[in-house]
Design a protein around this nucleic acid. Structure first.
Lengths: 225, 225
DNA sequence: CAACCTGTGAAGAACTTGTGGCCTCATCGC
DNA sequence: GCGATGAGGCCACAAGTTCTTCACAGGTTG
């Protein structure tokens, strides 16, 4: 399960370390250096999980946590240098989902992140089914009429996004944001190109798609079956 | 969710860039180059959202924000070159809903705009129902007797407008304004043409429409059911 | 370096939109 | 009633957009 994670830490070296650990796990990571930016970015990019340092300039981690908890249910992992029992209880009280003391070990970090994402994404389930199309999100596997289909990463991401909510129309911009991940800035034609390839692999007759359909002037959607 | 957005920026190149980004998301965009025009146009066209540059001739963005906030609850996104904390807090204090520093990245802009519109348009809800006709505004979907009907953008806009208030009569001029958006200058016959096409798709017998009805000499309305 | 994935521009197809025109039909004055 | 008048229905075509598809240029990976 790959996720979008925002890391907020005022020590750039520490932030880069955490980014490295998480990217090795296949996650998309964005870092900021103060609480104010953490709030802004969390609101605008809507990550799946926040790794928050407690001590930060402008707005501290506990406040960021408190504020965000009031507006969304994003998963939050607090990190602190002070390994006091007090801080921890305070953090969990405020609505953090988990808590770690510095120094951060890679094993512990990735284990806790995995656990949090599993909890948060419990509703996502592994297997998506639309008509004769099966998508196993955990295994990156797709089957059409029982037959395995090999997709590239982007193709899979687009298919998965659309299949999560059949009938819903996504603009090309939304597909770039949500399927390719933030920090991605590509032409909207690129989405078309991937869709062409996707249809070639998934549709019986790509000229009249039964699954990945175009909604003229708006974007694409998965047909309801 | 498509919205009417007014962009106020004294740098025409920057304004065009923002227009481009927003239009790619499907919004209707109008641009002005100074604070005085921003006030005028905001009052006369009543956009859903304002993207305001802080530094502008005649009346600056902060003043425009302050003045408009006193008279309406339009969503306001401030943009500034000065990325100082001060400005930002001042902006939010004055009543702006969100705040961005230049240079503006397309993803950040569209993400913030989406968030603002979602917040502002919380009451818009999704599903309109009139008789056997269902309109899902969020998904751009229309069903008649449960069967999906494919409409063009204009057809959908007209149908949605009329369905929001069944029984109310809209003149062709009002339909052009409210359904097609500002910046639109077309003949009133155009509305007739769209209505003809709409009826072909939605009505059982287009000659005796049960939904989109003509009010002779006035305009059109959605029948009450 | 070979194979493959990803992103882009361009040509052409498909679709939408706007308009003029012609015909039908509602309305009103007689 | 009955025409005159003009509003609305509907068609066909032109112009403008948007999508599909392809070929190709980096980039990555193994």
């Amino acid at each position: 399960m790959t996720a979008r994670i925002l890391v907020a830490d005022d020590d750039p070296k520490h932030a880069q370390l955490i980014r490295l650990y998480l990217e090795r796990e296949g996650h998309q990571v964005l870092t900021v250096g103060d609480g104010r930016s953490a709030l802004d970015v969390a609101r605008s990019r809507k990550p799946d999980l926040l790794v928050l340092d407690v001590m930060m300039p402008l707005v501290d981690g506990l406040d960021v946590c408190r504020i965000l908890r009031a507006e969304s249910d994003v998963a939050i992992l607090l990190v602190t240098a002070r390994s006091s029992e007090n801080d921890m209880l305070l953090g969990l009280d405020i609505g953090a989902d988990d808590y770690m003391a510095k120094p951060v070990s890679p094993r512990e970090l990735t284990a806790r992140v995995r656990a949090l994402l599993r909890r948060a994404g419990a509703g996502e389930g592994g297997l998506l089914q639309v008509g004769d199309l099966e998508i196993d999100a955990g295994r990156f596997e797709v089957r059409m009429r029982g037959e395995a289909v090999t997709l590239t990463a982007k193709e899979f991401a687009i298919l998965e996004l659309l299949a999560k909510e059949p009938g819903r129309v996504y603009t090309r911009g939304q597909i770039i944001d949500k399927a390719f991940g933030f920090e991605h800035d590509v032409s909207e034609r690129t989405v078309d190109a991937h869709v062409v390839n996707l249809r070639r692999k998934v549709e019986q007759n790509p000229a009249e798609p039964e699954y990945v359909q175009t909604v003229y002037g708006r974007g694409y959607r998965m047909a309801e079956h």
